[in-house]
Design a binder for these strands. Structure first.
Lengths: 185, 185
DNA sequence: GTCTATAAAGAGATAGAC
DNA sequence: GTCTATCTCTTTATAGAC
């Protein structure tokens, strides 16, 4: 639905609270009241954005590792797929990352559950690579996962497609830094 | 000033726009009108929080590397000082990181300048370590800096002091991952 | 599906007394 | 410094016609 994209764009640039239903309606070429034919309330838009975002990332990363046997190669595919998915739709994913706190009640609970499920997917990949002795074991899979998501997620706030680098090039830099470190030659 | 801490806390938890001056006044034990004895407008609070946050991080990191000669040790000190400073006052620094977009005009310009100045400080450390061949040169100092700040900054959104780990322990994990990678043994 | 009109509540900020 | 009272504007959301 196009309304979701319009909302995601405004939510990323101005924030959820600072975006008014009037603006969204104007961008869609509608009157404010007409929005309520499509949505029950403003928070519903945010909820759907977060849901679509997390489901998309989960499915993309899951598909990327499906046919990969080697544990360390799985880690590499997670990095590439995650960066690609995020940067392909910055509006959606940046909104999900930053505006979750604006949700409340069941909506919030559901989105947090989806986020935890995705984290568990990544953590599983890391843990299996540790079992195969391909990833260091002096740091828990939990912390290695948080560090990886730190490294990848923040990118969405400074990346610009006009910067001359593709998501794939950036993902490869992150792959080298994450796996081999900044001191590697 | 205590008002700044109260505001920073609400801004981090609920967001700048979702926090009302009425709430801030109530938390301070004042009437809404009394706030305006201390501030000119609501955005002034956000501006001061961002300013104090960035000045504090800059000063802390600068002090941490002042007496360190060895280039790679400087990088290590940046990691430790940055993580320590951030986690010592999560309210202030998380607000600065997320709510900058709510500022406009000169206020926004000034804060972005402070942020750029801090990034330049870190980039200088990385670049000198590259010159000394202590840090890999197949990735630009610019990108190595962004990757490092990615890794460190996002932490503030999931770190809890109740989690059983100190900022120093986390900083050491980040140091190992950033310098030597997740595959190091 | 989309409109006009409007209800109902909440927001930031100011005036002026004490 | 802090108060009460209030202004003015903006917000989300609904009613009901077409």
């Amino acid at each position: 639905m196009r309304l979701l994209s319009v909302a995601a764009h405004s939510f990323r640039v101005k924030g959820y609270d600072a975006t008014t239903t009037r603006e969204l309606a104007a961008t869609m070429g509608l009157q404010k009241a007409s929005l309520y034919y499509y949505i029950s309330d403003k928070a519903h838009l945010l909820y759907e954005i977060c849901e679509v975002s997390l489901q998309h990332i989960h499915a993309t990363v899951e598909a990327a590792i499906a046919d990969v046997r080697h544990p360390r190669e799985q880690v590499e595919q997670v990095i590439l797929a995650h960066v690609r998915a995020m940067l392909e739709d910055r509006d959606m994913h940046a909104t999900m990352l930053v505006e979750l706190r604006a949700l409340s009640g069941d909506r919030r609970t559901n989105i947090i559950a989806l986020r935890d499920k995705y984290e568990a997917l990544v953590r599983g990949v890391i843990a299996r690579a540790q079992d195969a002795n391909e990833i260091r074991r002096d740091i828990t899979a939990h912390d290695l996962t948080l560090a990886l998501l730190n490294l990848l997620n923040w990118t969405i706030f400074w990346y610009s497609p006009d910067g001359g680098r593709t998501p794939e090039q950036l993902a490869d830099e992150f792959r080298r830094i994450y796996l081999f470190g900044a001191t590697a030659k």
